[in-house]
Write a protein that binds this DNA or RNA. Sequence first.
DNA 1: GCCAACGTTGGC
DNA 2: GCCAACGTTGGC
Length: 172
Amino acid sequence: MSHWLIKSEPEMFGIADLARVGREPWNGVRNYQARNFMWKDMRPGELALFYHSNAKPSGIVGIARVGGPPRPDPTQFDAASEYFDPKASASAPRWWLVDFEYVATLPHMLSLAEIKADPTLAAMAVCQRGSRLSINPVSASHFARVCQLGGWDGAGSQAAPPPLVPTPYGPL
DNA sequence: GCCAACGTTGGC
DNA sequence: GCCAACGTTGGC
């Protein structure tokens, strides 16, 4: 099981929005490294830290779960979308997404300052200077420490991940 | 609003 | 393939 961190601006789509809708396609990611994490590395059932960027304060606010296998981001085909990509086609999608499901809101959000102040978390990519990647892998120990400091003890009670479902787009 | 860091684009 | 220019991210 891998662990992840996903960033979102709360004014665009925050943890409260995920809690309200329950499940959200993570569209609009237009960075190849972040895409590759969703396309090739994430597995349904894996957990992600939900990070608010450009927020007051920025920090980790909740937990989400990978809700299914990757699929082409439909917004790349939509000429009316701000995420439209004229170089993408249905036969050769360029951008992929997974859905994320709401799991929890941390009882205590971890501000960036708190993350940096914790010796065991200071190495996390999200608090390195100039870190812009919107999806990051997170070590199991960092994940557990964030949950501990955030006052969330539900990691052990998560259901086992569902079996992988083949997609029409080839091996994951 | 400022600016550092980073990724992408495009000329050559 | 190099690299300068440009656009974007995101903390402060």
